[in-house]
Each structure stands twice: as structure tokens, then as C-alpha cells.
């Protein structure tokens, strides 16, 4: 028993990028365990997603398809996936730490009578013992664990592993989704308006805080994010402005919001409370713009500019537009 199972996420027909990052994490484990990587996807009409998975470097792809699986059902997907983990002798099960991953893998782990660790940034397999590292206390500390029950289950934080590619076409097996009663089922997905880039998957996060003075002034934050081009940047917000009702909670970065680790993070008009720092300190490059030179945010920022955000941000937006146009 040494195979590594990846539960791939398919939403409305398309394979989600963090699932391919989970394949890379699985390959890392398979090197240690000596097993194969088996990607399992649930849904309806999965040919395109299965093809992508087969080309990702997974050794085998299993799709569980049928009309009952057209929309996500935590209980039904979990039963079907747990059965595939048993069939394929899974020693470990990975899934991306997304809204679906957080919902599904704990359920699968319980059916397999084992544990699960979530939001991991690294996975290991030494002498057949699986382990993982994960940020706790919103990143204020890092916990390293080893599994004492089998299979080992973990959700993998997006933007931490490279996207898997370069497979030479794995075998694809189709399994029929079971019919029957679902306890829960997704009825509708309401797009957040426009083509919003998910905060935790964005390559660039531009966050604003109290320093922007008025909710309307978030326009300069949105414009800077837009300057990076479609699908690149997302808008974030501090807890203070979310609590004040300026921005939705879905944009909150920090301990009671989202923890992000994009390659590039902008903190604009954010002083840098410990709560906020916890949510973004693992970003690769941090830029801070604040009028107070003593603001704690400058202690973690790789590059800081002191001054009026209303002068600096529009100039920065223009400069980024020029860079993007010339690239």
C-alpha cells in the first residue's frame, strides 16, 4: 500500500489549477512511498478534465461520472472517493485546500477512519511515515506532524507547489456515479460579478485599509489590481474596513479572514496589526504604502513608500500598466 491519491476539483467542467499543484505534492510523496499517483475526479462530462489530469504526470486517472454528480454533494462525493481510495490502496490522499477541499477531504478521512491535516505547505514521506507542515495561529507558528493512522490525508495550500505538467498520457478509467439520495447538493453558483480572481489563487494581491478614508476610495485599489491584466490580481482588505462594512468578508486578509501567500502583495493604507500580518507574511514580496513611517507594516515590507496613497497609487497604477504593456 503505497499509492498517493489526489482528489481533483472540477467546477462547471473545468479542472481547478490548485488540483494540479496537489498532483505535484503527490509526486513528492510518491517518490518517498514508491507508489503511483492516482487522480480521482467527480462530476459529469469529465473528458476535458480527465485529459488534463492524464497529461499532468499522474500515473492513472479515475473519473466518477454521472448525472447525480453534476453538482457538488459533500456526502455523495465522499462515499465515492473513499471507495476509490480503498480500491487503489491509497497510502495518502491529497486535495487542494479550497472551499471544496476543506469540505470534502475531512469527510473522506472520517469514512476511512483516519485523520486529516489541512492547509499544509509541505508534505513528506520518510521510511513509509507520512508527515506535513502547516501554518497554525494564522501563520504565527508552523506545526510539523507525522501521521499515526493510515491513510494520511492532507489538503494542500494553493500557490505552494508548482503546477504539475509533462505527463505522457496516463490511463483513464471511468466509473459510474452511484444514483441515490443525496443529503446535500449545490443548487446554484452565483458568480461574484465580473471575472474576479480568487484571492487565495491570485498571483498579486492588492489590499487596502483604513488609510483609504472612505469606501469609495477603494477605486484606486481596484484600478491598481486591474493594471496587472485580467486574471492576475485580486483585491484584499484589512479587518478594520471589513468590520466597517466597506468591503465584503470574502476579501478580508488576516486571522479571521483569508491567509494568502501570493508572489506579490501590496498593503496600502494598512498599519499592519498582528492580525493582518498573520494573513500575508508568507507572500514572497511585500510592498507597503502608508503615510506613517512608524507603521508596523514597514517591518515586514520588502519595499516601503511613505506618503499619501492618493498620490502614490495612481502613479504606481500607471507605471504597472506600462510594464504590463511592454511585457
Amino acid at each position: 500500500m503505497s499509492n498517493i491519491i489526489v482528489i481533483a476539483e472540477v467546477r462547471e467542467g473545468s479542472l481547478k489549477r490548485p488540483s494540479l499543484e496537489a498532483v505535484t505534492a503527490a509526486q513528492q510523496l510518491a517518490k518517498g512511498s514508491g507508489g503511483h499517483v492516482v487522480a480521482v475526479a467527480c462530476g459529469h462530462d469529465l473528458d476535458a478534465a480527465a485529459g488534463e489530469l492524464a497529461a499532468s504526470g499522474a500515473n492513472k486517472v479515475v473519473t466518477i461520472e454521472g448525472a447525480t454528480f453534476a453538482h457538488y454533494s459533500g456526502d455523495a462525493y465522499a462515499k465515492a472517493v473513499a471507495e476509490q481510495v480503498r480500491t487503489h490502496d491509497g497510502a495518502a490522499v491529497l486535495m487542494a485546500h479550497t472551499a471544496m477541499g476543506k469540505d470534502l477531504l475531512p469527510r473522506v478521512s472520517a469514512l476511512l477512519e483516519t485523520g486529516v491535516i489541512t492547509d499544509v505547505v509541505d508534505v513528506t514521506c520518510d521510511d513509509g511515515v507520512f508527515g506535513a507542515k502547516k501554518p497554525v495561529f494564522a501563520g504565527k507558528a508552523t506545526l510539523t506532524v507525522k501521521a499515526t493512522k493510515s491513510p494520511f490525508c492532507a489538503t494542500v495550500r494553493p500557490n505552494n507547489f508548482a503546477v504539475a505538467s509533462g505527463g505522457d498520457g496516463a490511463e483513464i478509467a471511468k466509473v459510474d456515479a452511484p444514483s441515490g439520495d443525496l443529503l446535500s447538493v449545490v443548487k446554484e453558483i452565483i458568480a461574484a460579478g465580473g471575472d474576479k480572481t480568487p484571492l487565495q489563487e491570485a498571483k498579486v494581491v492588492v489590499s487596502g485599509g483604513r488609510g483609504l478614508k472612505e469606501p469609495e476610495n477603494f477605486k484606486i485599489i481596484e484600478e491598481l489590481a486591474a493594471a496587472f491584466g485580467p486574471g492576475v490580481a485580486a483585491v484584499g482588505a484589512s479587518r478594520a474596513v471589513v468590520d466597517a462594512g466597506w468591503r465584503p468578508h470574502s476579501e478580508q486578509v488576516g486571522q479571521t479572514g483569508k491567509v494568502v501567500s501570493p508572489p506579490l502583495y501590496f498593503a496600502i493604507g494598512i498599519s499592519g496589526a498582528i492580525q493582518h500580518l498573520a494573513g500575508m507574511r508568507t507572500a514572497r514580496t511585500i510592498v507597503a504604502i502608508n503615510k506613517d513611517a512608524d507603521a508596523p507594516i514597514f517591518k515586514v515590507a520588502d519595499y516601503g513608500i511613505v506618503g499619501d496613497a492618493f498620490e502614490i497609487v495612481p502613479a504606481l497604477t500607471k507605471a504597472i500598466q506600462e510594464v504590463v504593456a511592454s511585457n
Binding site: V145, A147, F298, Y303, G304
Partner: peptide, 22 residues
């Protein structure tokens, strides 16, 4: 189902620098 191996503080970020004003 899991055993703690260690709990550590994350490595500190390199000291930030202010590159200019305005």
C-alpha cells in the same frame, strides 16, 4: 491520528526597507 513533531515560529522576514517618499 497525528503526532506533533514540532511547533516553531516561522523564520523572520528580512528587515523591511523604506525606499522613498511620495
Amino acid at each position: 491520528a497525528m503526532e506533533v513533531v514540532s511547533l516553531e515560529l516561522p523564520p523572520p522576514r528580512a528587515e523591511g526597507k523604506i525606499i522613498g517618499e511620495g
